[in-house]
Write a protein that binds this DNA or RNA. Sequence first.
DNA 1: CCATCAATCTACTAATGAGTAGATAAATGA
DNA 2: TCATTTATCTACTCATTAGTAGATTGATGG
Lengths: 227, 227
Amino acid sequence: MGEAATAPHKRRSKASDAAPDTMGDLVSQLKRDRIVSAAVDLFYRQGYAGTTLDEVAKALGMTKPFIYQFFWSKNDLLAEICSRAIRDANDTLNRLLSQQGSPTQKLLTIVREFTVSVLNNQAAAIIYNREETELAAKDRQTILQLRRDFDRRIMVLLEEGVASGEFVIEDVRVAAFGIASLVGWAPQWFRSGGRLNKDEAAERLAMLALAIVDAGKPKAMLGVAHG
Amino acid sequence: MGEAATAPHKRRSKASDAAPDTMGDLVSQLKRDRIVSAAVDLFYRQGYAGTTLDEVAKALGMTKPFIYQFFWSKNDLLAEICSRAIRDANDTLNRLLSQQGSPTQKLLTIVREFTVSVLNNQAAAIIYNREETELAAKDRQTILQLRRDFDRRIMVLLEEGVASGEFVIEDVRVAAFGIASLVGWAPQWFRSGGRLNKDEAAERLAMLALAIVDAGKPKAMLGVAHG
DNA sequence: CCATCAATCTACTAATGAGTAGATAAATGA
DNA sequence: TCATTTATCTACTCATTAGTAGATTGATGG
């Protein structure tokens, strides 16, 4: 095996995520993006197995071999879709981790921004959840790891808040899963064009997360209803 | 096309869910159940598209035509799996709706029992979520309806609690989705044989649901940590 | 034992769709 | 205008697998 024998047809341009610096690379990148975008749309609506590469190509006004100029296989295309979404989530997480603030502030920020990130990649997120089993073990591991990281970081944050007295939590582990549920399930109910936009939805979920750690609504402690 | 032309091979026994009254029907039912059970296991691990009927048959020590004696098609088998899980959830919901009690009590019961129901059908629930697109439109509609019912009933319940002053909720709709998230996401993290059993997990989630409607932990209002 | 009927198996078909080889068109440059 | 290279298409192959026809086994009753 070693390195690849027959490249996506024949192409010596940069790999998927390398920054393009020549004109040709830019064009290639654009084409790749459009393929991915069409595939996301179709895989989302019809499922991975239920979509043929001929359909994807047709949606682009092209034919199948066009796709093979950019991807090794149908599976490679799926992996690209999933890993883009994951990369995005990963970036978001890294960015948020470097921030300062109280556990409450951090929790709010994480839930808000992660929800928006998930909703921005709604279709890809749903595709990933569905087609996880289709992915090669390596890709699966990477992604599973990210999810574990997320849960774990939330747990650490919750411990912190409990230690500082900001949070009151009976079962930190389940509370963390609960918060992850809010974010992870959001694509199931959120519809763009609905009552709430993404930021608003994220804000509401952040409030629910606060409730879960028993840190919100200090006024309620006095028995005074608000709203 | 009117009624079916070629029945599952040739068989005049009862349909899937009819109560069996003859010996033969009982045996048929048992065989059906074992096919479904093997299929759930394999579809869960490998996905629907990634599993051949030959594999399912092999898992039973049988061969493919055996399956066709009980199911019209691979798709029919998938529909049976999903609709069993849904029927179960439906029964649970109906049972719970007939109960009496305060909004708080009702909410607790619904979250507890629904979580257990979902966890009992964990594999099937995950299969359904994944393979929704593979199902015929009719089956999809039925199931979507059940999910909407669930959300809606939770919403009604929350309104009730707000009216009675038991709950303090800023956005009832999102609160309902949040509670549905807790239940719907449970299969993603719950592992049998882990720290918690199903009942315990359900209980913890019920507590989180209470927190979301701001009805739990009255002791915390005095600033006294418990546990 | 034999006849009958159902249950199950062996061995096919037919269709689908991923992936590719080689032809063709289009761009680039002299 | 032609030569060369790159991008895309046409038209295949090949593997897989849902679904089936017909043979075979095994049970049941005479």
